[in-house]
Simulated scan of single mutants.
Amino acid sequence: MTQTDPSATVSAMDWDNLRVFLAAVHAGNYSAAAKRLRIDRTTVGRKLDRLERQLGVRLFEQGAEGYHPTAAGRRALEIADAMERLTEGLAGELRDEASQPMDRLRIAVAAELETELMPDIAAFAAAADRPVQVSIQSTADPAESVVQRKSDIGLCLTDHRPDHLRGRRIGTLRQAPYASRAYLARHGDGRPAAAYDWVRCSGWSRLPAMRRWDAALGDDVGVAALVDSWPALRRAVELDVGVAYLWTFIADRLPHLAAVAPVEDSLGADLWILVRDDVPMDRPTRAFMEDMTTRLDRLICPESAPTPP
Score class of each variant (00 low, 15 high):
27 A>Q: 06
107 I>K: 00
2 T>C: 10
294 T>M: 14
69 P>Q: 06
122 A>E: 14
85 R>C: 10
143 A>Q: 02
177 P>V: 02
239 L>W: 06
150 K>T: 09
235 R>W: 14
75 R>G: 03
75 R>E: 08
184 L>T: 02
110 A>R: 01
297 D>P: 00
168 R>G: 04
10 V>H: 01
219 D>Q: 14
305 A>D: 10
69 P>H: 07
237 V>M: 00
274 L>I: 14
113 L>R: 02
21 F>D: 01
170 I>L: 13
288 F>T: 04
284 P>S: 04
24 A>K: 09
133 Q>V: 09
53 R>D: 11
155 L>W: 05
200 R>G: 02
127 A>I: 03
154 G>H: 05
87 T>H: 11
85 R>W: 13
237 V>F: 00
158 T>H: 10
10 V>T: 07
47 K>E: 05
172 T>N: 14
145 S>P: 01
140 A>V: 08
31 S>L: 14
34 A>D: 02
113 L>A: 03
207 L>V: 03
103 D>V: 02
64 A>W: 11
35 K>H: 12
259 A>M: 02
209 A>R: 06
79 I>Q: 09
171 G>W: 11
171 G>N: 03
31 S>D: 14
268 G>Q: 03
303 E>Q: 09
120 D>N: 15
212 R>H: 11
39 I>H: 09
160 H>C: 10
87 T>Y: 02
193 A>G: 12
292 M>E: 12
80 A>T: 04
124 F>I: 03
191 R>C: 10
73 G>A: 13
137 Q>H: 07
250 I>C: 14
159 D>Y: 15
275 V>T: 15
240 D>I: 04
291 D>Y: 12
43 T>H: 06
296 L>H: 00
129 D>S: 15
122 A>L: 12
279 V>R: 13
279 V>N: 05
6 P>W: 00
103 D>K: 05
27 A>T: 13
118 M>E: 14
9 T>Y: 12
12 A>Q: 15
278 D>H: 05
140 A>E: 08
211 R>G: 01
175 Q>K: 12
222 G>L: 09
227 V>P: 01
203 G>T: 11
187 H>Y: 04
223 V>I: 15
208 P>I: 04
261 A>F: 00
158 T>G: 03
73 G>V: 05
308 P>Q: 06
167 G>H: 01
161 R>I: 09
170 I>F: 08
15 W>M: 13
246 L>T: 06
10 V>K: 01
221 V>D: 07
44 V>M: 05
171 G>S: 02
126 A>M: 08
12 A>M: 12
295 R>T: 02
20 V>P: 02
114 E>G: 07
7 S>W: 04
125 A>E: 13
182 A>G: 12
92 G>M: 12
234 R>C: 08
78 E>H: 12
259 A>I: 01
205 S>K: 03
21 F>P: 00
133 Q>Y: 11
